[in-house]
């Protein structure tokens, strides 16, 4: 009994102290020193330091996820660095982390440092109220990119985001435009429940429901190339007819194509089976250029130019939420230039 009481007391003390430290740290953040931003993260780069700028450089602080997250993020980060460059009249400070609290700390650091604009792609949708309010009080304008945050609209200038379902809509619209006599579709899904999977599945599911397209098989390969190959192989072995492969990323499309190749089924522009992928990796776009695949869709990682135009007043936002235009490439019209400009990775 005594022992139990003691343990309860201990837990109480522990909880109390944690609460206090939590308060303490958030209080400290407000006063904040600029070093927190640079020490917290795994990668911090600072552009040429022109501290007292009467020269008119615009200071931009970018809080983003690290480029190692995905090919998408890599392209996103490169795009930001290219657009907000010194030549374009910017002074760029960046911070990359997958952790929300580190991102929050870095954002607070940018605010106290006194940037003109704060650009945020948050790791999590919650917890940003305080920091964005601080930014507003300091007169710093906030733009969200890629990801929305759960805060009041008044706290940011605009959010440039992707509409995930637009990607699927665009791809399915392209597929319908091919005017095939019948659509027998093998649908290979990404990891169930992920944003990309939901966005890329929705439009196709509508077609299945309306009966315009036939669902031969709909399976998730959880982004796994080898699994996608197995799924397509099992359909081929069953002898069922199909003429479209709709894979929700490039890797799975490649797996599917490997199964077709082994079974001697032609694919691509002049082939029997239409192959569709997503992500626009450079190697996938090269398959398009070689006319071995038919279509590749992309969730565009290029938001920097839109934000830059807004900052410089070249365009004005009609609403707080700006939907970034999605892209889709057709094998019959794609050029080498498209691959160089829009392709991800190498």
């Amino acid at each position: 009994m005594k022992k139990r009481l003691k343990s309860i007391l201990m837990t109480g003390v522990l909880a109390m102290s944690m609460f206090l430290t939590a308060c303490g740290s958030s209080g400290g953040d407000k006063g904040g020193d600029s070093t927190t931003a640079s020490s917290g993260g795994d990668k911090t780069t600072e552009a040429a330091a022109t501290k007292d700028d009467a020269t008119g450089t615009i200071k931009v602080g970018v809080v983003n996820n690290p480029p190692s997250e995905s090919g998408y993020r890599e392209a996103n980060v490169k795009d930001m660095e290219a657009v907000f460059s010194a030549e374009n009249g910017y002074e760029l400070k960046t911070f990359y982390s997958l952790k929300n609290d580190e991102q929050l700390q870095a954002a607070q650091g940018f605010i106290t440092e006194g940037v003109d604009y704060l650009l945020v792609s948050a790791a999590e949708t919650t917890g940003w109220d305080e920091v964005l309010k601080n930014a507003q009080e300091a007169g710093i304008k906030v733009y969200l990119f890629d990801r929305m945050i759960d805060v009041d609209e008044s706290l940011y200038e605009a959010a440039v985001v992707s509409d995930m379902s637009a990607e699927g809509d665009l791809a399915v619209k392209w597929l319908l435009d091919q005017n095939l006599p019948e659509y027998n579709v093998i649908h290979i899904q990404g990891a169930m429940g992920s944003d990309a999977q939901i966005g890329r599945t929705g439009a196709l599911d509508e077609q299945f429901a309306s009966g315009k397209m036939n669902k031969v098989v709909q399976q998730t390969a959880t982004w796994d190339e080898a699994e996608a190959k197995k799924i397509v192989e099992s359909v081929i072995n069953s002898g069922e007819k199909f003429n479209v492969i709709y894979a929700e990323n490039d890797g799975m499309a490649k797996g599917a194509v490997a199964a077709l190749d082994e079974a001697g089924i032609t694919h691509g522009v002049d082939g029997d089976v239409i192959v569709m992928g997503f992500d626009c990796n450079k190697w996938a776009l090269r398959e398009l250029l070689a006319k071995k695949w038919n279509y590749d869709g992309q969730c565009s990682p290029f938001q920097a130019q839109i934000i830059s135009d807004l900052i410089q007043g070249k365009t004005t936002a009609s609403s707080k939420k700006i939907i970034n235009e999605e892209k889709g490439f057709d094998a019959t019209t794609i050029t080498q230039e498209d691959i160089d400009t829009y392709g991800l990775g190498e």
Partner: peptide, 21 residues
Amino acid sequence: VTHNNDGNIVLAGNLISIINA
């Protein structure tokens, strides 16, 4: 027995898929 896209004669079927995979 089929031809694959490289023009080779290959075996295909579930059994082949199993031992291959």
